[in-house]
Design a protein around this nucleic acid. Structure first.
Length: 441
RNA sequence: GCGGGCGUCGCCAAGUGGUUAAGGCAGCGGCUUGUGGCGCCGCUAUUCGGGGGUUCGAAUCCCCUCGCUCGCCCCA
């Protein structure tokens, strides 16, 4: 292909897709409104330092996946690889942290320079929630429920919630030492990657996909066992509250998230429909982040869900159950009326009619082809519109429009163009399809 | 960054060395120049991602290159 095309890992969303996106976004917006979570929009571009300090210098995201460049003022800028750091920065910058607890959501593109594969792109989109200034176990569960219920509202099924506690920084430090000592003694049984990580990021070895390593790890000390009594009790409370809400979960002591700022509760929601990148939603508590970015010590918890992955799951669900909620979400809405028109005078009149009907709130498709009536009716039929509004030279000359039902038997009705309200009434009053009118009997 | 698979019309797709590169969908035109949903007829790739090579002859074999895709890594 010598033709111009989008950059690797950057995808276009065509109408078939944007329909679904809009449906998901609408459900999410309403979901957040009811939960008292308000939207925040932050820039896509931030100073590189924000992510370096926030996410952690040692992480893969910061180390090798950021889209960074120098702007004309020689400042190092980075296309955001995730949303949390920006939200925290914005909250600090505008003094939101001095106004009590904040519950914020965001949606938008994120950028990571990685090799694309199923469920992974270089520009991808997240919907996320950040709850700032809350520390209780209950707030963890409220946040998790927010994610879980949103997915349920979308009609996604077969998801699995996995949770773990990463404890406090002190807990992790103790555990790290313990784990490294244990693994060090079995170094020769580890795969090459894991041996490397023994020094760089030993906790990450826990979720290695190497089978031999996994088998070895079965007997390794767990983070859970290393938790301080306070941390352990806190985590027990989180689990009790999840039970109380009837939200099923699985304990996964190997779950360690890839960003440095997580502590205590960490969770992931996964789907078996996704291939290697199975996580639809991931999040956790990040009590240290605000302070690390120079703000007041502020406990916080948040999560982000991947739009592309969610859509993949949704499409699978729609395929499996064509009548289900997920399928409803992806359907397109046909116009309410299709305007068939031909002839110079008629075309001008049709444009006016189209406009006034649209202003009256009707979804109108105007045939702009000037083709033969037969052709236009074919298109009208395909559009799925229940009505055709026909304007030819005759109608134009006598100032009327001919309304013809397309989905059921029945004669045309002629109405004066001067009375759009009457036209709207007809369009809205009649049965939408022959199927429905049969059901009514 | 490293592996595997693939690249024929807008989409799906047959073709695996031999005269003109199937077919389906969509699109366009016609049967039907003011009335649709069905049907029928016709049109739409001098060309097989790009570049070299082998051969009398290549979409079909070889090399390079680009792209897509799946996986590793990592994560949403």
């Amino acid at each position: 292909m010598s033709q111009l095309q989008s950059l690797r890992g950057m995808v276009d969303l065509l109408p078939e897709q944007t329909r679904r996106w809009q449906a998901v976004e609408a459900v999410a917006r309403d979901h957040f409104r009811r939960a008292g979570v308000e939207e925040i929009r932050t820039p896509l571009l931030e100073v590189t330092e924000l992510f370096a300090r926030g996410i952690g210098e040692g992480t893969d995201v910061v180390g090798k996946e950021m889209y960074s460049f120098l702007d004309r003022g020689e400042r190092s800028c980075t296309l955001r690889p995730e949303g949390t750091a920006s939200v925290v920065r914005a909250a600090m910058q505008h003094g939101l942290l001095n106004q009590g607890a904040q519950k914020l959501w965001y949606a938008g593109p994120m950028f990571r320079y990685e090799r694309p594969q199923a469920g992974r792109q270089r520009q991808f989109h997240q919907i996320g929630v950040e709850c700032l200034g809350v520390s209780s176990a209950r707030s963890d569960v409220e946040a998790i429920a927010l994610a879980w219920d949103l997915l349920a509202a979308l009609g996604v099924q077969g998801l699995e919630l996995e949770i773990n506690s990463l404890g406090t920084p002190e807990d992790r430090q103790c555990y790290r030492a313990e784990l490294v000592a244990w693994l060090e003694a079995r170094r020769d049984q580890l795969d090459a990657d894991s041996q490397q990580r023994l020094t760089t990021n030993p906790l990450r070895i826990l979720d290695s996909k190497n089978k031999a390593t996994q088998a070895l790890l079965a007997d390794a000390p767990t983070l859970l066992e290393a938790l301080s009594p306070e941390s352990a009790q806190r985590f027990a409370q989180v689990q009790a509250l999840l039970h109380q809400l009837g939200i099923p979960f699985k304990l996964n002591t190997r779950l360690v998230r890839g960003l440095d700022y997580y502590g205590h509760t960490a969770f992931e929601i996964t789907s078996d429909q996704l291939g290697a990148q199975a996580t639809v939603c991931g999040g956790g508590r990040y009590d240290g982040l605000v302070e690390q970015l120079g703000g007041p010590a502020t406990p916080a918890i948040g999560w982000a869900l991947g739009m592309e992955r969610l859509l993949l799951v949704l499409e699978a669900a729609a395929k499996a159950d064509p009548a289900g909620a997920a399928a409803q979400l992806t359907m397109s809405a046909p116009p309410e009326v299709y305007v068939v028109n031909r002839g110079e005078a008629a075309e001008a009149v049709a444009l006016s009619l189209t406009r006034s009907l649209r202003l009256a709130g009707v979804a109108v498709e105007l045939d702009g082809s000037g083709a033969a009536f037969g052709k236009q009716f074919k298109r009208a039929d395909r559009s799925g519109a229940p009505w055709a509004a026909v304007i030819g030279d005759e109608e134009a000359a006598s100032g009327v429009v001919c309304l013809k039902p397309l989905l059921r038997e029945g004669g045309d009705q002629r109405l004066p163009l001067s009375d759009p309200a009457a036209i709207v009434t007809i369009l809205h009053s009649a049965p939408k399809s022959s199927l429905e009118s049969e059901e009514e009997r």
